[in-house]
């Protein structure tokens, strides 16, 4: 007696499952990231909507933290850390993105604008061995890999801090800060406008 197997096109089913996984997985990851952010930022006084943390973060808040909407913290090799000491104010504008290993430390005041991008291993602290002075990062700033921003620095809107730079003086808007100590050059000198 021969029994016939039910006719199932296995490859087609597998492809369908794969397609399903591709659509479901990112949403599931995002949902998990948003729940994780809720938990990690439970001590934050003001937390925006849709904040997502795709990996572990170390958050220490003894002062006041004000976080905007739609922030993204990317997970990776090392966790990012946000530290706000007693009496300090740490504010982050909406849609700002953080890669892994970023360190933000506020002893007095650190203010980050909207739509900024922080690459991996960026360090930002408003106190060094000698003095404490507030740091202001305006909107649309891109701080590239491994850059260090020193106390009292103000980085202007749309400016870029190049990889590995150590910024010790203010950076005007639309400027590229590069080197150690960082020097400011016009972005028009080194980059073509790619449209808005």
């Amino acid at each position: 007696m021969t029994s016939r197997m039910p006719f199932v096109r296995v490859p087609a089913v597998l492809a369908q499952l794969e397609a399903l996984r591709k659509t479901v997985e990112p949403r599931a990851q995002r949902a998990v990231a948003m729940v994780r952010a809720r938990w990690l930022f439970r001590d934050v006084q003001s937390l925006g909507h849709n904040v997502a943390a795709y990996g572990p973060l170390s958050v220490h808040n003894a002062g006041e933290m004000v976080l905007g909407d739609r922030l993204t913290f990317v997970g990776g090799m090392l966790p990012s850390s946000l530290v706000c000491h007693a009496g300090a104010l740490l504010t982050i504008g909406e849609e700002t993105q953080f890669n892994y290993g970023v360190s933000l430390e506020a002893w007095k005041s650190v203010s980050v604008g909207a739509r900024c991008m922080f690459a991996s291993f960026v360090r930002l602290g408003d106190r060094d061995g000698h003095h404490t002075a507030p740091i202001v990062i305006e909107d649309d700033v891109w701080v590239a890999h491994g850059a260090i921003i020193m106390p009292g620095v103000r980085v202007g809107t749309r400016s870029v801090v190049a990889a590995g730079s150590i910024v010790t003086q203010d950076v005007p808007p639309d400027t590229l800060a590069m080197g150690n100590p960082a020097r400011n050059m016009s972005l028009e000198l080194v980059a073509r406008d790619t449209g808005s």
């Binding site: 590069m178 080197g179 073509r192």
Partner: peptide, 16 residues
Amino acid sequence: FLRKGLIDSTGMMELV
């Protein structure tokens, strides 16, 4: 230098 793609931003810093 920019439009011809001869020197990039790191290179410009080296030139300076």
